[in-house]
Amino acid sequence: MRTSWVASSVALGALAFLYLPMLAVALFSFNKTRHGLSWGGFTLGWYARLAQDPAILEAARNTFLLAGVSTLLATLLGTLFALGLERHPFAPRVRAFLEDILHLPVVTPDLILAAALVVAFGFLRAVSSLFEPGFLPMVIGHVTFQVAFVALVVMSRLRSLPKELDEAARDLYATYPDYLRRVLLPLLTPGIVAGAMLAFTLSLDDFVISFFTAGPTSQTLPLIIYASTRRGITPEIHAVSTLVFSLTLVLVLLGERLTRRSA
């Protein structure tokens, strides 16, 4: 009983440590007082000012466009990777090697991955100016780490499906495209959607890789927030941080619910 009480207390303390700072940011985004910690009354004015700030609006457009494009590409590539790895008869050593490679972007620090991308784009710029810092390198950079997360989620869903489905499809003379379209993909849809939401969330919140690959006209909300905090935190930054956090939280909860439903 005592152990259970201690574990619950530690869990609640950890949650408070994680979310109380964000709750404070959300609270001050509704504070009329521009500077200081004193409460000056409730207002929605800082959110209204965001809609009139061209820099914030452009950054928001870049952020969602980048997250949308990279998520589509990562979902397609990650799903294909999972299907190939789980359904292709690889030798055990080859399969283990591919799975190790798949986990590398998950465990590699963002700073190292970003530095590697800078070096790679430096070589590619000698071939084409398309790889100058800007939107295309940012999409490529985000896809490099999103693919692994999508593939892992889809693979977990694939492994929960009985392998007899393949044999049943062959017994019924179904071609592989028909089996994929009518049976496998519908069963994988919850996992694919959950992986896509996770990838979108990771792209939405990413700072390090965006910082290393962004150009002058491709600033995102995390970059704008970082630049603004160096000049002094304002209520507008509290407001935009609250909006980004709220959207991320909603996507994470939806993805977690879909994953549970898949299980």
Rank of each mutant, 00 (worst) to 15 (best):
K32Y: 08
G78Q: 06
V154I: 06
A169C: 11
L18D: 08
L73Y: 07
L254N: 11
I56Q: 08
A174T: 13
V208C: 03
L65C: 05
V143S: 00
P162W: 06
I233M: 13
S70C: 04
G191S: 08
S228V: 03
P21L: 01
A151K: 08
I112Q: 07
E167S: 14
L152S: 08
R34P: 01
E256Y: 08
V118R: 09
R61L: 14
Q219N: 13
L258F: 08
L184D: 03
Q219Y: 11
L136V: 12
A16Y: 04
F30I: 10
W5F: 13
A263R: 13
P235A: 10
A227P: 04
I56N: 07
A168H: 05
E164T: 15
R61Q: 11
L152D: 07
Y47P: 06
A7F: 13
M22H: 15
H88L: 12
V153F: 02
L66T: 00
D110T: 11
V154G: 08
L20S: 11
A126M: 07
N31I: 07
V10R: 10
I112H: 06
I209D: 01
A74I: 01
A115G: 02
S4D: 15
N62V: 00
E99L: 13
G84V: 01
T217A: 11
R34W: 12
A96D: 10
H142T: 03
V106S: 03
A24L: 15
R230M: 09
G45L: 08
L243K: 09
L66Q: 00
V139H: 00
I233A: 14
A55N: 10
A199Y: 04
V143F: 00
L198Y: 11
